[in-house]
Amino acid sequence: MSDLLDIQRIYLEPAAADLPRGREILARFPEAAIVEVESHQRIPEVHGDEANVRRWVRIKREALVLGVKKTMTARPNGRSADFIAPSTANGCAMACAYCYVPRHKGYSNPITVFANIERISAYLRRHAARQGGKPQPNECDPESWVYDIGENSDCSVDARISDNVRDLVTLFRELPNAKASFATKHVNRDLLEWDPRGRTRIRFSLMPPADSRVLDIRTSGIGERIAAIDDFVAAGYEVHVNLSPVVVRDGWLGDWAELLEQLTAGTNAATKSQLAAEIIFLTHNRALHEINLGWHPRAEELIWRPGLQQVKRSQNGDLNVRYRTGAKGSYVTALTDLIGERAPYLRVRYAF
């Protein structure tokens, strides 16, 4: 784990140390220096300092923030999941060039773990109970309410720090009307021992290896992710794939054809019978583009393509760029047609 995480400093909200999970995490990293902070959201030396771009990866590897989740909400989603669960962590040890999180939460954004897992779990149990049975199928799931438990982090990495994710997998195993879901770019085989009984959906993110080697920094390789899928299905997980972000460039469709062939060859019949895909084309951001130029300009050669992209101001005022209207529709059609031809077993849940 030292290549991904080598925790040297823990920024601690004192209230987190009063909780069992907080004490467990502190005991797990006994050599780490403890820096008390007023709030996990206000750490000047970690968040909001442009100079951190020069030591982006080092901060991600060496720093951990331990806090307490203050607000409990389950936001309606309706595409990947029915609800976005209150997070048990945010930030990430990985450093994907296209990740939206640094747009909002600081430049380096190491992992923040929330110690009040009991409160989060109790909230989710009550929320699911209030929903009752799902009245009709939707694109999230035909029978169960789906809760995304990893919107702002990668749960497979979070599980290397604490038992928060395992506690949620255990919780959803007991809920008759709900299941958990999270996307991941990290293969953590410890999860194979958790006995989820079909109540947790893992979405392995995939893209052509040539793109991943440039954009998916510090993640498990694409081949390793595909090789893990059958094992996770056999261990009782529902497994889907996120084909994202789709990057349009010269030869992109041919490389996606090769990836689909790799997925077909690398998975068995049991996996294929339950496999489904989400397809998300790249959305980028002007501010993130400027940040990336300070530490990984090669990535921007792939994902900052003004000739193919148009600007759209988001609800929070950010200037995002996405592929041009009209052209993007043709890209989506080309990729979904390719899936129908090369991987007809792969049900496309949605594509945009």
Rank of each mutant, 00 (worst) to 15 (best):
A63H: 11
A63T: 08
A63Y: 09
A63C: 15
L64C: 14
L64F: 11
V65G: 08
V65T: 12
V65R: 14
V65M: 15
V65Y: 10
L66Y: 08
L66M: 05
L66P: 08
L66C: 14
G67P: 10
G67F: 03
V68H: 12
V68W: 05
K69Q: 13
K69L: 13
K70S: 15
K70W: 07
K70G: 12
T71W: 09
T71C: 00
T71S: 15
M72R: 15
M72W: 12
T73I: 05
T73N: 14
T73S: 15
T73W: 07
A74P: 12
A74Y: 08
A74D: 06
P76W: 03
P76C: 04
N77W: 04
N77Q: 15
N77R: 15
N77K: 10
G78T: 09
G78Y: 14
G78W: 12
G78S: 14
R79G: 00
R79W: 06
R79S: 01
S80M: 13
S80G: 10
S80L: 13
S80T: 14
A81N: 04
A81H: 08
A81T: 03
A81Q: 03
A81F: 05
A81W: 01
F83L: 02
F83T: 03
I84Y: 13
A85T: 03
P86Q: 10
P86T: 06
P86N: 13
S87R: 09
S87L: 05
S87D: 10
T88R: 05
T88V: 15
T88N: 11
T88P: 05
T88E: 09
A89W: 02
A89K: 05
A89V: 04
A89F: 04
A89E: 06
N90H: 08
N90F: 05
N90G: 00
N90T: 01
G91A: 04
G91S: 11
G91D: 07
C92E: 04
C92T: 02
C92V: 01
A93V: 07
A93R: 11
A93W: 03
M94S: 10
M94Y: 00
A95R: 14
A95C: 12
C96Q: 05
A97V: 03
A97E: 11
A97I: 00
Y98M: 08
Y98W: 07
C99I: 09
C99H: 11
C99A: 09
C99Q: 07
Y100F: 15
Y100Q: 11
Y100S: 14
Y100C: 12
V101F: 14
V101Q: 13
P102M: 02
P102G: 04
P102S: 05
R103K: 05
H104N: 11
H104I: 02
H104Y: 11
H104G: 00
K105Q: 03
K105N: 07
G106Q: 01
G106H: 00
G106S: 11
G106D: 06
Y107N: 08
Y107V: 13
Y107A: 04
S108K: 04
S108Y: 01
S108H: 03
N109A: 07
N109K: 02
N109W: 09
P110S: 00
I111D: 01
I111Y: 01
I111G: 02
I111P: 08
T112F: 05
T112G: 07
T112E: 14
T112R: 09
T112M: 10
